[in-house]
C-alpha cells in the first residue's frame, strides 16, 4: 500500500501490523466461501443422483507438491531473516517453481477426470470437483503473483533485511500457507467423500 497507509501506522500501538491483520480477515472471508462450496457438496450429495468416482491420483501428487512449496517458502523466510542470501534466493525460486508445478498438476488432474468420462456437466459430483478446484486454483494464482514479486525483489533489490521487507515477506508467506492448507483440506474432503 502507498503513503497514506503507512502514514496512519504512526498511530498504531498494537504489535500486529494493520496489513497483516487485514490479510487474516481476508483469509477468514475466503474460508467462508469454500465452507459454503463444500457444504453445498455435502447437501447435494445427500440428495441422491450422485455419480461416484475415484479422485485421480494426480491430485495426490499435487497435494505433496504444494506442501513442499509451502515448506520451501517457509525456509526461504527463515534464511532471509537470518541473512543467508544464497539460501534465501534458491528456496524462494524453488517455492515459485513448485507453485507453477501445482497449477500444471491440477490441470493434469482435470484432464484425468475427462479421460475417466467425468466431464464438467456429467453430474454435479464432477461439476463440484471442477468448480471447487478451479476456484482454488484462482486463489493459487494470486499467491504465485505475490511470490513472483518477492522473487523479483530478491534478485533486483540489494539484499537487506528491513522491517518493511520482512513484513512484505510475511504477508506473502501467510497467504501462501493459507491457500496451501486450503488445498490440503479440499483434497482430504474429496477423498473422504468419494
Amino acid at each position: 500500500m502507498n503513503a497514506p497507509a503507512t502514514r496512519v501506522e504512526y498511530n498504531r500501538r498494537n504489535k500486529i501490523p494493520a496489513a497483516k491483520f487485514a490479510l487474516w480477515v481476508a483469509c477468514a472471508s475466503i474460508t467462508m466461501m469454500f465452507a459454503a462450496l463444500t457444504s453445498s457438496y455435502i447437501v447435494r450429495r445427500a440428495a441422491g443422483n450422485w455419480l461416484e468416482f475415484p479422485l485421480p491420483k494426480v491430485f495426490l501428487i499435487s497435494t505433496i507438491d504444494i506442501v513442499l512449496s509451502s515448506v520451501a517458502l517457509h525456509l526461504a523466510y527463515r534464511a532471509f531473516k537470518n541473512g543467508r542470501e544464497q539460501a534465501y534466493k534458491i528456496l524462494l525460486s524453488v517455492a515459485l517453481i513448485l507453485g507453477f508445478a501445482f497449477l500444471l498438476l491440477q490441470y493434469q488432474g482435470w484432464m484425468a477426470l475427462q479421460n475417466m468420462g467425468v466431464m464438467m456437466t456429467t453430474n454435479p459430483s464432477g461439476s463440484f470437483v471442477y468448480v471447487i478446484s478451479g476456484v482454488h486454483a484462482a486463489h493459487i494464482l494470486g499467491g504465485i503473483a505475490a511470490i513472483l514479486v518477492a522473487v523479483l525483489h530478491a534478485f533486483v533489490l540489494p539484499f537487506r533485511v528491513t522491517e518493511q521487507r520482512k513484513l512484505r515477506f510475511e504477508l506473502t508467506l501467510t497467504y501462501w500457507h493459507f491457500v496451501d492448507f486450503l488445498w490440503v483440506y479440499l483434497f482430504f474432503f474429496f477423498i473422504t467423500q468419494s
Binding site: P4, R7, A18, A19
Partner: peptide, 11 residues
C-alpha cells in the same frame, strides 16, 4: 476511535 484515517485509505 481517534484515528487519522482508515487503516488503508486506498482500499
Amino acid at each position: 476511535v481517534g484515528a487519522r484515517d482508515m487503516a488503508s485509505p486506498m482500499l
